[in-house]
Computed example of a mutant assay.
Amino acid sequence: MTHINVLDPGASPLDYYGFELRRYREAAGLTQRQLGDVINYTGSLVGQIETARKLPTPEFSERADVALETGGLLSRLVTLVMRSQLPAWFQQVAELQARATEIYSFETHMVHGLLQTRAYARAVLGVLDQANLDDRTAVRLARQSIFERVEPPIYWLVLSEGALYQEIGGAQAMREQLAHLLSFEGNPRANIQILPYSAGAHVGLQGSFDLYRFGSDPSIVYTEGYGSGHPTANPDTVNDCSLRYDHLQAAALSLKESAELIRRVMEDRYGDQLA
């Protein structure tokens, strides 16, 4: 007899996901291999997800929802699964990003995680630690699902020009990353401004920060260190960073000029030509 690994659905969101996937599959009278054939995945992968040894992806969840007629349950659960896999100190921040109606980010040296491509994110995450890199990359990218909501947050990024030249992941990864930034051109809810070298001394020299605003709750400022995050709703800090952000936006290039600079760097430095 085949040994069936029994999961405690209350142990974690990942265990709960695996429990529900198995429950729906068995109710449909399908083996792991049969379900895999239907949704174009291996039966082995289905088994690994059911036993909480492998993270499901949004694509897997969508296909399984359709095949098993779950009413979208797995697609709803996968968001919680991904968030639960984030470092403990960052889980609160991911929740803030998911709840915010407006997000204002200033980045000094690399593209913000909410706009990173897979190759770029993989290079960032893999600098010192290659363990479970595929899963950790998927978890980071899953945070970007906030832009797929019926009413996504208004997002504004002021990015230092140096981040366009810091080659992360190689030339091909940078071409893809800069092209991804350009894909938001003309989107009124996702705006990217470049803070040029010519700005000289500016109010963001102390480092990167995020400002989260909500419909009724107080605004929150988030800063990050090595292996730690620091959200605060202190009114003085929020007011100070709000003023700083206003000045950063004023010192940055316009949206049109920013897109032109991104395109120029992509073509000249990374050898790509847009049609």
Rank of each mutant, 00 (worst) to 15 (best):
T2Y: 02
N5P: 01
L7A: 03
Y16V: 02
Y17D: 04
G18P: 06
E20W: 05
R22C: 01
Y24W: 07
A28H: 13
G29E: 06
L30F: 06
L30T: 04
T31E: 13
N40G: 00
L45K: 04
Q48F: 03
T51R: 06
A52S: 07
A52W: 03
A52G: 01
K54Q: 12
K54P: 03
A64Y: 04
V66W: 09
T70D: 08
G72P: 06
L74M: 09
V81D: 07
M82D: 15
P87Q: 04
W89D: 00
V93S: 11
E95T: 15
L96G: 11
R99Q: 14
Y104L: 10
F106S: 02
E107W: 02
H109I: 02
Q116R: 09
A123C: 05
G126C: 09
Q130D: 05
A131S: 14
D134K: 06
Q144V: 09
I146Q: 11
Y155V: 12
V158H: 05
S160I: 00
S160K: 03
E161V: 04
L164D: 09
I168F: 00
G169N: 11
M174D: 04
E176K: 11
Q177C: 04
A179N: 14
L182C: 06
S183I: 10
F184R: 04
E185W: 10
G186C: 05
N187S: 07
A190S: 10
G200V: 14
V203E: 12
G204H: 13
G207Y: 12
F209Y: 01
D210G: 00
L211D: 10
R213N: 10
S219D: 15
I220G: 03
V221W: 12
T223W: 14
E224W: 13
G229N: 10
H230V: 09
H230D: 13
D240W: 08
C241F: 15
S254A: 07
R263I: 00
V265N: 05
M266K: 15
M266D: 13
D272M: 08
